[in-house]
């Protein structure tokens, strides 16, 4: 497996060049989506929830409880959208990986260059989301930076394993299935909208094992300022293992598929 810093950079610059055409649209979506969600759920639904003074909300408002969870879930979705379809299409017979690997670039260069771009997209989306949340009063300004880092780590924990898998997928329908049957249930039952402790006992255990739960807990503890250092290390390590594991598997699957 060959790797060159210049090759990775050139592969990354390809994705940036393409993004130059669409970045304005993505920024609008990155602002509008969190603004609508936080307004409707945070302010609207939040009024009802806050009225009950629920103990599950860590003593905060529903808006402050919801925003970091929603951010973690949104980064999971962004990671899936950026790494599933584009990686699958790029690896097909007429895909851009085929062009790159006919030059001095290696499959590993193509993988890392693309992941660098996906990481850039997650980072910019997380930053925009966190700024909107701050504007809504859901996050203090001093915690926006750490929150963005925690959300980016959450997104990357999905991006690298999904990219490693998507390069092997032959039927696009599988990617849609992954979104419907994996991403959406995670979105709903990983503590994004309500505390996992409110779930039935057996489902709580399942929910706590999911990567999104780890990301939501990490983002929420950073955002609310009640982070237990040991828990932060635990959540971060869990997510970092996924990032590294996804890279290791991706290096193999990219090599196998692109040099068949």
């Amino acid at each position: 497996m060959q790797l060159s810093a210049d090759g990775v950079t050139q592969a990354w610059r390809y994705w940036l060049l393409r993004y130059r055409r669409t970045w304005r649209g993505t920024i609008v979506i990155s602002v509008a989506n969190p603004a609508l969600f936080l307004a409707a759920l945070g302010f609207g639904l939040g009024k009802l929830v806050d009225h009950e003074h629920s103990a599950y909300l860590h003593g905060s408002s529903y808006l402050a409880f919801l925003a970091p969870g929603l951010l973690a879930a949104a980064m999971m979705q962004t990671a899936y959208i950026e790494s599933a379809g584009p990686v699958h299409v790029s690896a097909r017979r007429a895909g851009v990986y085929r062009v790159a690997t006919a030059t001095p670039l290696s499959p590993l260069d193509a993988l890392l260059g693309h992941l660098l771009f996906i990481g850039f997209r997650i980072l910019t989306s997380a930053t925009t989301f966190a700024i909107v949340a701050w504007a809504f009063g859901a996050v203090p300004a001093s915690r926006v930076g750490p929150l963005v880092l925690a959300a980016t780590l959450t997104g990357l924990a999905f991006a690298t394993p999904v990219a490693a898998w998507a390069v092997t997928v032959e039927r696009p329908a599988l990617l849609n299935g992954g979104f419907r049957f994996v991403i959406m249930p995670l979105y709903m039952f990983s503590g994004t909208f309500f505390a996992v402790a409110q779930l039935p006992g057996w489902l709580q255990a399942v929910a706590r094992c999911t990567p999104l739960y780890q990301g939501v807990q990490l983002c929420r503890s950073v955002s609310l300022g009640d982070a237990d250092p040991l828990a932060v290390v635990g959540h971060s390590s869990y997510l970092a293992v996924l990032v590294v594991g996804g890279l290791a598997v991706g290096a193999r699957t990219f090599q196998r598929v692109l040099t068949a």
Binding site: G7, Q10, R13, Y14, L17, R18, R21, R93, A94, G95, V96, R98, V99, A100, A102, T103, P104, L105
Partner: peptide
């Protein structure tokens, strides 16, 4: 690979980029 040119069966051009940008990307590789 640094010393060969390749014309695959499928053109493998990026339809969303311009002619010049396609050459730019390839030259960078």
């Amino acid at each position: 690979r640094a010393r060969i040119g390749s014309v695959p069966q499928d053109d493998l051009l990026d339809p969303e980029l311009t002619v010049g940008e396609n050459l730019l990307i390839y030259g960078r590789y």
